[in-house]
Simulated scan of single mutants.
Amino acid sequence: MNQPPPHGWHQQPPPPPGWPQQQQQPQGWQPYPQPPKKNKAPLIVGIIVGVLVLGVAGTFGFLYLGANSDSGSPKRGGTMPGVCANVPEAALAKARTTNGNPAMSRERKLANHTQTSCAWDQTKGKDGSGLRNTDAYVVVGDAGQEYERRVSQSKQNNQGTINERPLDGLGDEATAVLVDGKSAFLQVDIIVRKGDTVVEVEHTGWDSGMFGNKRPDVTEFEAAARGLAEALLAEV
Rank of each mutant, 00 (worst) to 15 (best):
Q3M: 13
P5C: 08
W9C: 01
Q11R: 11
Q12R: 15
P14T: 12
W19R: 15
G28L: 02
G28K: 06
Y32D: 14
Q34V: 10
P35T: 04
P36W: 06
V51W: 10
V53W: 00
V56D: 04
F60G: 12
F60E: 06
G61F: 04
Y64H: 15
G66H: 14
S73Y: 08
R76K: 15
G77N: 10
G82M: 06
C84A: 09
A85I: 02
A85S: 14
E89Q: 13
K94V: 07
A95T: 07
R96A: 10
T97N: 03
N101Q: 14
P102A: 04
A103G: 09
E107I: 13
R108L: 11
N112M: 07
H113E: 12
K126D: 15
D127P: 06
G130P: 00
R132M: 05
T134V: 13
V139C: 00
V139W: 07
E148Q: 14
S152H: 15
E173K: 14
G181H: 05
G181F: 03
K182M: 13
S183I: 00
V192M: 01
D196T: 07
T197F: 03
T197W: 03
V201H: 06
T204G: 01
G212V: 05
N213Q: 14
T219L: 00
R226W: 01
E230Y: 11
E235V: 10
